[in-house]
C-alpha cells in the first residue's frame, strides 16, 4: 500500500497544474524512493519526468513498487478542491481501482476525502541517457516564461542559441522577427535573480514555442529554471521542487531535413 502525507499540499496542486495540459493520462510510480511520473504528450514530442522524493513527505509509506494510472485532468479537478494551506494525504493500494485524496485544513477543523477512479494505462518507460550538455543556462523562471510568452505572439518556433555573448531567443513570423539576448548576470541582489551560462561549445537549436509555453506552467514551483542544450538532443527544461525533487521537461528539437 501507499500512504503519503504532504504538509505543503499546495506543491502537489502546482505540480498538477504544470503537467495536466501536456499529458492527459499517466501512471504514477510509487516506490521507496518516492512518488514519480514519466509521460509523453500525445504527439510524443515532449516528455515530462517528475520526482517527489520520499524524504520530502512528512509521512511516506510504500510497501512495494506499483503504478497507479490517473487521468490528470480529473486529478487536477480533485486537487483544486484542496485549500492552498491544506495538508494532503494520498492513499492507494497495489491493484486497487481507486485512490483517496484527503485534505486537512491547517487548524484541523475541516477534513475532506475525495476518491478518484484509477485507469489502466499502457505506457512505455523510456531510458533517458546521461548526456554531456554543450550549454546549461540558469535563469529566473519568470523571465523565461515572459520570453516564451512574448515570442509566441510573433512566431511559432524559437531558436535558442548559446554563444560567448549570452543566450539568444529568436523567432520569426508573418509580422516580423524578434531576438532577445540574455547575458550572464551574477551581480544581483538575490541568487535566484542571476542568469548563469555555462558553455562548453556554442549550440543553436529550434523548438516549438507551444511546448515551451506549456513547460512554463511549472514556474510557480521554482524561482529558477535550468535549460540544458546539446546539438541534436532534446532540450531539458528543469524546475527544482524545493526539498523534494524536480520536474523535468524534455522537448525534441526541430531539425532540418
Amino acid at each position: 500500500m501507499l500512504e503519503l502525507r504532504l504538509v505543503q499540499g499546495s506543491l502537489l496542486k502546482k505540480v498538477l497544474e504544470s503537467i495536466k495540459d501536456l499529458v492527459n493520462d499517466a501512471n504514477f510510480d510509487c516506490s521507496a524512493t518516492g512518488f514519480s511520473l514519466q509521460a509523453m504528450d500525445s504527439s510524443h514530442v515532449a516528455l515530462v519526468s517528475l520526482l517527489l522524493r520520499s524524504e520530502g513527505f512528512e509521512h511516506y509509506r510504500c510497501d512495494k513498487n506499483f503504478s497507479m494510472g490517473m487521468n490528470l485532468g480529473n486529478m487536477s479537478k480533485m486537487l483544486k478542491c484542496a485549500g492552498n494551506d491544506d495538508i494532503i494525504t494520498i492513499k492507494g493500494d497495489d491493484g486497487g481501482d481507486t485512490i483517496t485524496f484527503m485534505f486537512e485544513s491547517p487548524s484541523q477543523d475541516k477534513i475532506a476525502d475525495f476518491e478518484m477512479k484509477l485507469m489502466d494505462i499502457d505506457s512505455e518507460h523510456l531510458g533517458i541517457p546521461e548526456a554531456e550538455y554543450h550549454a546549461i543556462v540558469r535563469m529566473p523562471s519568470a523571465e523565461f516564461a515572459r520570453i516564451c510568452k512574448d515570442l509566441s505572439s510573433i512566431g511559432d518556433t524559437v531558436i535558442i542559441s548559446v554563444t560567448k555573448e549570452g543566450v539568444k531567443f529568436s523567432t520569426k513570423g508573418d509580422i516580423g522577427t524578434a531576438n532577445i539576448v540574455c547575458r550572464q548576470n551574477t551581480t544581483v541582489d538575490k541568487p535566484e535573480e542571476a542568469t548563469i551560462i555555462e558553455m562548453q561549445e556554442p549550440v543553436s537549436l529550434t523548438f516549438a514555442l507551444r511546448y515551451m509555453n506549456s513547460f512554463t506552467k511549472a514556474s510557480p514551483l521554482s524561482n529558477t529554471v535550468t535549460i540544458s542544450l546539446s546539438s541534436e538532443l532534446p532540450v531539458v527544461v528543469e524546475y527544482k521542487i524545493a526539498e523534494m525533487g524536480y520536474i523535468r521537461y524534455y522537448l525534441a528539437p526541430k531539425i532540418e531535413d
Binding site: 509523453m40 504527439s43 510524443h44 514530442v45 515532449a46 516528455l47 512505455e124 518507460h125 523510456l126 531510458g127 533517458i128 541517457p129 518556433t157 529550434t206 516549438a208 538532443l233 532534446p234 524534455y250 525534441a252 528539437p253 526541430k254 531539425i255 532540418e256 531535413d257
Partner: peptide, 14 residues
C-alpha cells in the same frame, strides 16, 4: 524546412 522530431527518436524504451 525544419522537421519536428519525436522524443522516441532519441530515447528508447528501458
Amino acid at each position: 524546412v525544419n522537421q519536428q522530431r519525436q522524443i522516441t527518436n532519441f530515447f528508447s524504451p528501458s
